[in-house]
């Protein structure tokens, strides 16, 4: 049994998440693993592969354009970095957040949660229109 699956089952045993949430997280974990193991052909049709950030802006009368394409696989791998943050750093960050009036416990934020968030990015579109440009974030 791998570590992430064990974490999910531990959270379920401790009553932190419901059985449905545990099932969704495990499904997200398996979805994360299957494309690498089975190749691109096994991926469901129409599933997003990339996160795109497209921005056009005008600054000091000069036009600018930013176009970033990041594989969602990179985001999925990146969220695992959250597990590498030392507990001491998380405690300090929690203390600073509380001081600023944001009582958020970062130690409860697990890579599985972020992974599930990335899984559901597929249909997310963020569009921001400004007087001097626009920003669009979407998956393709």
């Amino acid at each position: 049994m791998n570590e992430q699956r064990r974490d999910i089952l531990d959270m379920l045993a401790e009553g932190k998440i419901t059985a449905d949430e545990a099932e969704r997280l495990i499904a997200a974990l398996e979805g994360d693993r299957s494309p690498a193991a089975a190749g691109p052909a096994a991926r469901p049709k129409g599933r997003a592969k990339y996160l795109r950030v497209v921005m056009e802006f005008v600054e000091d009368g000069e036009a600018g354009r930013l176009n970033v394409r990041a594989p969602l696989q990179l985001l999925r791998a990146g969220v695992q970095l959250a597990a590498l943050i030392p507990p001491r750093a998380l405690e300090r960050a929690n203390a600073e957040l509380s001081k600023s009036g944001v009582p958020f416990d970062l130690t409860q934020l697990k890579p599985e949660h972020l992974g599930a968030l990335v899984e559901h990015l597929d249909e997310t579109v963020v569009e921001l229109e400004m007087s001097d440009g626009h920003l669009r974030v979407y998956c393709e």
């Binding site: 036009a63 354009r65 930013l66 394409r69």
Partner: peptide, 9 residues
């Protein structure tokens, strides 16, 4: 698959 493209002036 990562691509970063920036153009300014």
């Amino acid at each position: 698959g990562t691509r970063f493209d920036m153009e300014y002036s």
